[in-house]
Design a protein around this nucleic acid. Structure first.
Lengths: 232, 232
DNA sequence: ATTTGTATTATTGTCAACAATCTTCTTGAC
DNA sequence: GTCAAGAAGATTGTTGACAATAATACAAAT
C-alpha cells in the first residue's frame, strides 16, 4: 500500500459534491450536536487536521462554517470552542424562532403551495397524534417534528428565512428534544400541530402565525422548565 | 522608489484592536455599500491581497466575513462576488426584518429599560418630524432613522437578535434609502415613529410590535415601488 | 458564420513552514 | 505556603509556493 489508508474517506477522486471544508464541518457538526464534543470544549485545528489528514487551512474554514451556524465560538488567538449558551441566550434564540416560524407558517397558509402540502402534513401530523402519548424519550415523535419543520421551512419559499431558521434550529435542537421529553408536552404539541393544519386548510394566515408562535413559546418554556429542574 | 508606499495603513505595530481580516472586511464593506464595487462584480483574492499588501489567507477570511453579512456571495471554485439580490430576495429580507423589528420593539415596550430610553427617543423622533417634510433626498432624516434603529436594536437586549438585525439592515440599507427618498414617505414614516413612541410610553407591547411591522412593510413597499418605476 | 475541441491563462484550493501570541510550568522571593 | 516573574511549550495567525480547476482564446471543421 503506497500511502496510509484514509480512515475517514474524506477525499474522493471523483468530483466532490461538497467542498473539503464542508465535509469536515459536517463531520464536526455531528459530533457537536450528538454531544461527543461537550459544550465549552476547545477544538484545536492541529488535532482535527491530523485526524482527517488534511492541513490546517480547510479545518480553519470548516470552523468558520460552524461558527456561522452558531455551533462553535471563535475567539481571537484562542481558537474555536463548542458553544455553551446560557439559559438567557437560549431563550433569546427561541424568541427569534417564534417570530420567524410565525412568518413561515403565515406564508404557507397564504401561499399557493399549501394545496399540495396539505396531504403530506395530514399524514405526518396524524402520526404525531399517534406517537405523542407513547412513553419514553419520544425520539420517534421528535424525528417527525424535525422533518415537519424542515418541510415547512422549505415550502415557505423565502430563501433567507430558510437559512436563518435552519441555523437557529440546529442551535436549539438539543433544547427542543428536552422540551418534548414527556408525553404530556408531546400531546400539547400535537394539538398545536393539528390547529396549525386547520389554519393552513382555511388559508388563515393570522391564525397560522399565532399558532406557530405559541408552539415555539411552549417549546421554550418546557425546555426552560427542564433546565431549571436540572440545575436545582 | 524602493517599494510602493502603503496607501492603506492596514498594519499597525501597536496591538491591533481589530484582526487583520476584520480590517480588510471593513474596508471592502465600505466599498460595497458605497457602490464602489458594483453588484455582481467579482472580487479576486489576489488583487485585494496585493492592494493591502497581505497574503491571500486573511483576504479569504475577510471575504467569509462579508459573506456572513450577506454582502458577497462565495461560490465553490468561483470565488466571491458582490451580491446582487433580486427584487424577490429583497422583499424576503424585508419580511424577516418586519417580524424581528416587531419582536425588538415589543421587547422594548415591555422591558424595564424603556424609562431611560423614552427621553432619547422623544428627542430623535421630534427631529424626525422636523426634517421629514424637507425637500431633497432626505439624508438627514435617514441618518436619524438609522441611528434610532441602532439604538433600539441595542436596547432590546437580545444579543442574537441584534446580530441578525444588524446584518439584515446592512443588506437593505440601500433600499431603505430609496424608500425614504420622498417627503411624503418620510412624513408617513415620522407618523409611524410617533405612534411607536406612544406605544412604548404606554408599555403596550402588542401595539409596538404591530407598529414596527407596519413601518418595515411600508418601507418595503415604498422601495419596491421605486424599483418598479426604475426598471420600467 | 457557427460550433466544437484544444491549449493557454487565470483563479481558487491546499499545503507546510514560520511568526506572533497565549498558556502553562517552573523557579524564586517573601 | 502563596504569589510573582520568567522560561518553555502549545496554539493560532500569516505567508508563499504548489496543485487543481474553471474561464478564455484560438483554431479547425462543418
Amino acid at each position: 500500500m503506497p500511502v496510509a489508508e484514509m480512515s475517514t474517506h474524506l477525499r474522493q477522486s471523483a468530483p466532490l459534491t461538497q467542498s473539503l471544508p464542508e465535509q469536515i464541518a459536517a463531520r464536526l457538526s455531528e459530533r457537536i450536536v450528538s454531544g461527543a464534543y461537550t459544550p465549552g470544549q476547545r477544538i484545536m485545528e492541529q488535532n482535527v487536521a491530523e485526524e482527517f489528514e488534511v492541513s490546517r487551512g480547510p479545518v480553519r474554514e470548516a470552523l468558520r462554517l460552524l461558527e456561522k451556524d452558531g455551533l462553535v465560538m471563535i475567539l481571537p488567538r484562542r481558537g474555536a470552542q463548542v458553544t455553551n449558551p446560557s439559559i438567557e441566550e437560549v431563550n433569546e434564540i427561541f424568541d427569534i424562532r417564534a417570530m420567524l416560524n410565525g412568518l413561515r407558517d403565515r406564508l404557507i397558509a397564504e401561499g399557493p403551495q399549501r394545496v399540495q402540502l396539505i396531504p403530506v402534513l395530514e399524514q405526518d401530523i396524524a402520526r404525531l397524534a399517534e406517537t405523542a402519548a407513547n412513553p419514553g424519550p419520544g425520539d420517534e415523535y421528535i424525528d417527525i417534528v424535525l422533518r415537519l419543520n424542515r418541510l415547512l421551512t422549505q415550502a415557505a419559499g423565502n430563501h433567507r428565512l430558510q437559512a436563518i431558521l435552519g441555523s437557529l434550529a440546529v442551535q436549539t435542537v438539543r433544547y427542543t428534544r428536552l422540551g418534548l421529553s414527556t408525553p404530556q408536552r408531546r400531546q400539547q404539541s400535537a394539538r398545536n400541530w393539528q390547529s396549525l393544519l386547520q389554519a393552513i386548510r382555511d388559508g388563515n394566515g393570522d391564525a397560522a402565525e399565532r399558532i406557530a408562535r405559541q408552539r415555539v413559546i411552549d417549546s421554550r418554556d418546557a425546555a426552560a422548565e427542564h433546565l431549571r429542574a436540572q440545575s436545582a
